[in-house]
Design a binder for these strands. Structure first.
Length: 549
DNA sequence: ATTAGGG
DNA sequence: CCCTAAT
């Protein structure tokens, strides 16, 4: 028999179509909260369950622990199909553990007959300003709410259940009573608050504004914040504490990990600080790795990949040896043997023409206009052509063109366009119509690039926001984890690939070095230019870079 | 598919 | 940014 009371699930989408979902289930006195982002499946790592739920599950279904509580109802796993456009409650499935039975149901379907009380669901799809988390376009405002969800978001079934239990086991149930009572009190007082007040409370609790006007929603959030504050004020940084089994043994003295000096990545307490550790048993049952996003530099103390053996503290060590690219072998030999006119204008760089090349590059890297940019232009150009792919006859540039032709006449790279880009790609919350068009434009360019006549993509200056994002990503995930950083922080920035991140980081490091050198020499560091990263930022880069050297 | 490094 | 080699 269920003790079920109510369940409410909220979904919201911010204006950038980042899906934010939270499930909030109140089952009698047991509280469960789940949250997931974007295309993640909602997994156990996103969930908080009321301690008593876990106890029950533990004792009843997994034989973990020796609790003997009355059977209760819980949601042990929720997986969502988080397709951006079809986010509905209907595609959220919950596995309900009730008594001896375990069954999976859809929220969209009738759950109510299962319990004495009605399981209620609600759905809100309002664009709420406060609901962007990962990869937020609002990084500046939301810098304090970024969190790193567990990399493996697809735990399912028993594993997920176990995970939950392990997650919760450590935090024990001792806080339950206190939490419940305070929650009740708070609940009552929250009832009397106006929406505005609730929003304020929300703001002070989570450090961000919300546009949600649903009192219930706000109330739940706030309550839950209180709930978790209560629980997590205890040293429960799961990402930093030792193995779960250790926690089991000593629930009261969980060693909290070193707090990062950064504030930026401290997630709000009601969100998990990151993944949680699996113990040996779980490792065995999962082929995927759980990355431990502990704050601070010692990020990857959990590494299940063999390749991670090369890494020390999340930092990639050792250099990869590079054979001279075939292109160059060929190029140089070709250059010697054939004094092809065409070849001679390809930038095989001597120090002298390097300057010229750079100049041209700078002038016109933006864009080659369509009509002039066709494949056979290479033969007839009057400028320079760079980066001819290896082994590709230049005449065939059309077929597989990574060919880029640059023309001297710089008027084909409109200054205006260049000028507008920085603000347009900015991550700042100003989604102007302009921005839309450029983003679209970029996509067009990209797609054009797909089908043959590949062009260099627009030069997209990095914004400070992006740089900050990158730095934070590096600081938390380590240098070299570009794809991970991309996934977690830049997944909505279509124009930034993981390679771009890598390149940018390299440039930042370079910049930080030169800056430092200049400073040491006592040279006047050039006045801060708009496109340059601020000194403090470069210092941070330097710091991180040197910490991995 | 990712990452490092040369251009 | 692009390209390619190494993993």
């Amino acid at each position: 028999m269920l003790h079920a009371a109510a369940k409410q699930t909220s979904f919201a989408m911010d204006e950038h179509e980042n899906i934010f979902a939270s499930g909030f289930a109140e089952v009698d006195k047991h509280v469960s909260f789940l949250t997931a982002f974007e295309d993640e499946d909602m997994g156990a790592e996103h969930s908080f369950l009321g301690p008593e739920c876990s106890r029950d599950i533990a004792s009843t279904h997994l034989g973990l622990g020796t609790f003997d509580l009355p059977k209760c109802f819980s949601i042990d796993n929720i997986s969502c199909a988080f397709d951006d456009d079809e986010m509905t409650v209907d595609n959220v499935a919950a596995t309900v553990v009730a008594g001896e039975q375990t069954k999976t149901e859809l929220f969209g379907e009738a759950l109510e007959p299962k319990g004495e009380k009605i399981l209620h669901e609600d759905k809100c799809c309002q664009p709420a300003a406060g609901q962007h988390f990962m990869d937020s376009e609002y990084m500046d405002d939301a810098s304090n709410i970024i969190c790193f969800p567990s990399e493996d978001s697809h735990l399912q079934g028993t594993l997920a259940l176990q995970s939950e239990l392990m997650l919760l086991d450590g935090r024990a149930c001792s806080t339950a009573a206190a939490t419940e009572s305070t929650s009740c009190q708070n609940s009552v007082s929250l009832d009397h608050m106006t929406v505005r007040e609730l929003q304020d409370a929300f703001h002070s609790m989570f450090g961000r504004e919300t546009a949600v006007i649903d009192k219930q929603w706000l109330k739940r959030r706030i309550l839950f914040g209180l709930h978790n504050n209560n629980e997590l004020d205890r040293p429960l940084n799961l990402t930093c504490c030792g193995s779960i089994s250790q926690e089991k043994e000593d629930k009261s003295t969980v060693a909290s990990g070193t707090e990062s000096s950064e504030n930026a990545f401290n997630s709000p307490k009601w969100m998990l600080d990151g993944g949680f550790k699996m113990d040996e048993k779980m490792k065995g049952s999962s082929s995927d790795s759980q990355t431990n996003y502990s704050s601070g530099a010692s990020e990857s103390d959990v590494s299940f990949h063999g390749k991670d053996e090369n890494e020390v503290g999340g930092l990639v060590t050792g250099k990869r040896v590079h054979k001279p690219p075939r292109r160059y072998i060929e190029e140089s030999s070709e250059f010697k043997s054939r004094s092809h006119l065409r070849r001679s204008s390809v930038s095989v760089k001597s120090p002298k023409n390097k300057v010229v090349d750079a100049k041209i590059h700078k002038q016109c890297e933006e864009e080659v206009n369509e009509t002039a940019g066709s494949g056979n232009q290479i033969g007839s150009f009057d400028g320079a052509c760079i980066q001819v792919p290896f082994g590709l006859p230049v005449e065939e540039g059309q077929a597989k063109g990574n060919t880029l032709c640059l023309r001297q006449d710089s008027d084909i790279c409109p200054k205006t366009e260049h000028a507008t880009i920085p603000s347009e790609i900015s991550d700042l919350p100003c989604p102007s119509a302009k921005s839309q068009t450029v983003v679209k434009d970029e996509r067009v360019i990209r797609s054009n690039m797909q089908k043959g006549r590949r062009r260099r993509k627009h030069h997209m200056p990095w914004t400070l926001t992006e740089v900050m994002k990158l730095i934070e990503g590096v600081s938390h995930l380590g240098v070299g984890r570009w794809s991970k950083i991309k996934r977690l922080l830049f997944s909505s920035s279509k124009h930034r690939t993981s390679v771009d991140l890598k390149d940018k980081w390299r440039n930042l490091v370079k910049a930080s070095c030169t800056q430092l050198r200049k400073k040491r020499k006592g040279l006047q560091v050039r006045k801060q230019l708009s496109h340059q990263a601020p000194e403090s930022v470069l210092c941070r880069v330097k710091e991180l870079a040197s910490s991995c050297a």
